[in-house]
Nucleic acid binder design. Sequence first.
DNA 1: TATCCATTAAACAATATTGAATGACCCGCT
DNA 2: AGCGGGTCATTCAATATTGTTTAATGGATA
Lengths: 295, 295
Amino acid sequence: MTRSQIDWALWRTFLAVADCGSLSAAARHLGLSQPTVGRHIEQLETSIRRRLFLRSQQGYLPTEEAAALMTEAKDMAFVAESLERRASASTNDASGIVRLAASHVVGTEILPWLFGPFMEAHPGLEVELALGNSNADLFRHEADVAVRMVRPTQDNLLARRIGTAFAGLYARTEYLDRHGRPKMLADLSGHRLIGPDRDAASIGFLEGLDPALSRRSLRLRCDSEAAQLTALRAGLGIGICQRGIAARDASLEAVLPQSFRFPMECWLVTHDDLRHVRRIRLLFDHLASTLPEWL
Amino acid sequence: MTRSQIDWALWRTFLAVADCGSLSAAARHLGLSQPTVGRHIEQLETSIRRRLFLRSQQGYLPTEEAAALMTEAKDMAFVAESLERRASASTNDASGIVRLAASHVVGTEILPWLFGPFMEAHPGLEVELALGNSNADLFRHEADVAVRMVRPTQDNLLARRIGTAFAGLYARTEYLDRHGRPKMLADLSGHRLIGPDRDAASIGFLEGLDPALSRRSLRLRCDSEAAQLTALRAGLGIGICQRGIAARDASLEAVLPQSFRFPMECWLVTHDDLRHVRRIRLLFDHLASTLPEWL
DNA sequence: TATCCATTAAACAATATTGAATGACCCGCT
DNA sequence: AGCGGGTCATTCAATATTGTTTAATGGATA
């Protein structure tokens, strides 16, 4: 069943020391004393017969071996946190914490607008937003519900198709007034284009749309879509934006809307076994009903 | 960083009690005494202000709330185990435990044959086989390396395409002697077909190949592919089998090999950050070089 | 160079955790 | 009905863990 011999608590202080960089800092963070934290590390090191930190008067420096364990230790922390969160609220109460994962853009541009009436209706509920682009978050227990733009493949996930978001090219009206409005795709080459930097997925996606849209053809490159959006709004050039978001911004104007438009399926995802947890169900259903009109 | 307040060790005994069904059994299993296990549960329950077990003289029965936490608690155990395993062996030693995930069929029919020379060459290495059909195992830290028949979608995974395995219809020669050899697809309907039971993915897949292959057309249904294979070998009927496996079994004979043959990409997958861990790399490379000829 | 602020390490006392032992209970079996 | 095997709860002493305090060390700063 459980074959592990090492006290799980030791991993927790291991993580804290590695993150904080010193016994003392970790101790403050964990609410323990510096000697105990030191003893925990000692204990862990003798258990695994391996040195995890280089000691110095300036703090504890993780060895390579310790660094290799960090991702897993973090996972452990995620699970613990999630476990605690789920345990602290009843299954069928409309109270507790719900953690929602989404991309930066969706999380900043759309979601906040949807929470007003929801939080009004359920005063006991707390919502946490975990923004990022990884789809791993549901698996790593970083969130209870996720808004995703790709169809989830994993089983043991409950997914509902919310609708289709369309993305297109947009630019600030002032920019277009000054630099002209492209009439055809070829006109784009003369423009300041905004797009991804080194994110392989996005670049590949862009080139798939039109081979002319290589990475080098972009004048402003940034992997943060939120920053790209702000750049658009600042009038720096032409870039990709979701139609729904652009539509709600009077300063933005569509560019070549008929020749450049691609759909993105939008999915709402949660863990299978959380289906019947009241607070999660509430958020899930609320998003399912309100999100579509924002796409 | 770590917002959890609850001692991680408590979750460990929580899991043990829920799994074992009683304080005493859990205590034996954990190497603790029955009173401490009881105190742990008490402590956990007061921490989360929720009752996790129904007490009785016959043992501790998990409440619904506790049941809802089980998957996560198990995940925690997986991570802890994996952490311990990875920590106990040096990054650049050819020693320690490597855990390999694969389907039941691959794990029973192919992999054992590949380990001989490998374990000979690396006496310090221990190999664990985690057989199952879920692709979640890498994520849930159940394994270090996985053999998968679908292209892995997650990022932060290192995947190498091993080759293409072909699957086709096969039956035992005796069966075909007695019941005749189908000459065309339509002939199949008169035969005893062996296939999946309720596994939605497999059923959908089968129907996609040929609409005639509905679930009802199957005479022996079982979700275990290994059992299907044994049924084939027992001469119970016609079923799907990987070409490589069937080729090594003289009693099996291909059925309609030209009209029914579908490819499955075979992938070797590991975590990104484990690329440089010696023992994992060794297994990965060994499989990459020996597996293709067995497909 | 002297001082201050951070760190780790060591020693000892306070505290919390644990285990052993016990009694009470329930179930199934003979 | 009585017995054996399993369970849980309680008590108290043994033990292990923790915190406090101290001293020593290194780096930054004036």
